[in-house]
Design a protein around this nucleic acid. Structure first.
Length: 292
DNA sequence: ATAGCGCCCTGGTGGC
DNA sequence: TGCCACCAGGGCGCTA
């Protein structure tokens, strides 16, 4: 399940190959992936446009598109400060989405939903078994992006995410602390895997009311969130089931998971069997000895 | 405003 | 071996 480290890994890889590439054509095999455009609109509005450097916000991938202006001598490098009206593709991978760049001749999975052919003989392919993933196309200065994007909370790996910011997000809430961590409006980018791992690292039971955490616990949780995300990112993300990066390869952090997916197995810290609960409607993994 | 729940969707799994 | 109920879960819309 792509969460912040996985989406950021994909972003970095796309950043190495996409900027400067012109869209030569679009193939839409499942129209409902497109949230605010028909296949014809997508094709018409992206044809000839040139990718800029990919961005990320929470679990959303932001792919800027510049108009290929007719100005002479404007190569890919000249795009960086382009003033032409732009647009962006906003991609959310949800559970099983994959965004890869592959040679056009490479066989594609039958779950390929949308593919952009590029001017260098490669394709940007969006594949998704369960078809939960979404693509928006938004012109600069226009409405129409995903509602959740505008409401995202702070980036947990950015400097702005301080213990005070986390404390404010948790304060006064009676919901389980895990539910608040999964709420993208409070903190952006955490999903089920890293919420469980961060709560374990902080020694906090996921069912605890968020507003009831002591200051020291909030600080431990803040540190745990950053450490877990940073290590997962360094390992190229977690492949528990479906995730692959922009080159189609799995991540490596699954080898370091302490509780997620380890129900019944011994806690790495104390040896007690890891329990599996349901919190906020999600499967939740917890060591009932270490997390209180 | 907040919290909880059902829905979407399909492949994999486990029970019989 | 075959069948089928059930599970995975992020975001969103709905309800109380």
């Amino acid at each position: 399940m792509p969460e912040l480290p996985e989406v950021e890994t994909v972003r970095r890889q796309l950043a190495a190959v996409l900027p400067g590439r012109r869209i030569a054509g679009v193939r839409v095999r499942l129209a409902r992936v497109l949230q605010n455009a028909s296949p014809e609109e997508l094709a018409r509005r992206t044809a000839g446009r040139v990718f800029g450097p990919p961005g990320r916000r929470g679990k959303y991938l932001l792919l800027p598109l510049f108009r290929a202006g007719g100005a002479s001598g404007s190569g890919p490098g000249a795009r960086a400060g382009a003033e032409e009206a732009g647009a962006r593709l906003i991609v959310h991978l949800r559970m099983t989405g994959r965004l890869t760049v592959e040679p056009a001749g490479e066989p594609e999975t039958p779950y390929t939903r949308v593919a952009f052919s590029l001017d260098d003989g490669q394709e940007l392919r969006f594949a998704d078994v369960r078809t939960f993933g979404t693509i928006h196309l938004v012109e600069d200065g226009q409405e129409g992006g995903p509602a959740g994007l505008a409401a995202l909370g702070p980036e947990p790996l950015a400097d702005e995410f301080t213990p005070e910011v986390l404390a404010a997000a948790l304060a006064g809430r009676r919901a389980p602390v895990k539910a608040v961590l999964l709420d993208q409006r409070r903190v952006a980018g955490l999903g089920n895997i890293y919420a469980d791992e961060a709560l374990f690292a902080a020694g906090i039971h996921p069912q605890r009311p968020a507003g009831g955490l002591a200051r020291a616990e909030v600080e431990r949780l803040h540190e745990a969130i950053r450490t877990v995300l940073a290590r997962a990112l360094a390992e190229g993300g977690t492949t528990f089931r479906d995730y692959v990066n922009g080159r189609g390869q799995p991540g490596g952090f699954q080898a370091y998971l302490q509780v997620y997916g380890r129900a019944g197995r011994p806690c790495p810290r104390c040896g007690a069997a890891i329990a599996r609960l349901r919190v906020a409607g999600r499967g939740t993994h917890v060591c009932l000895t270490c997390q209180t």
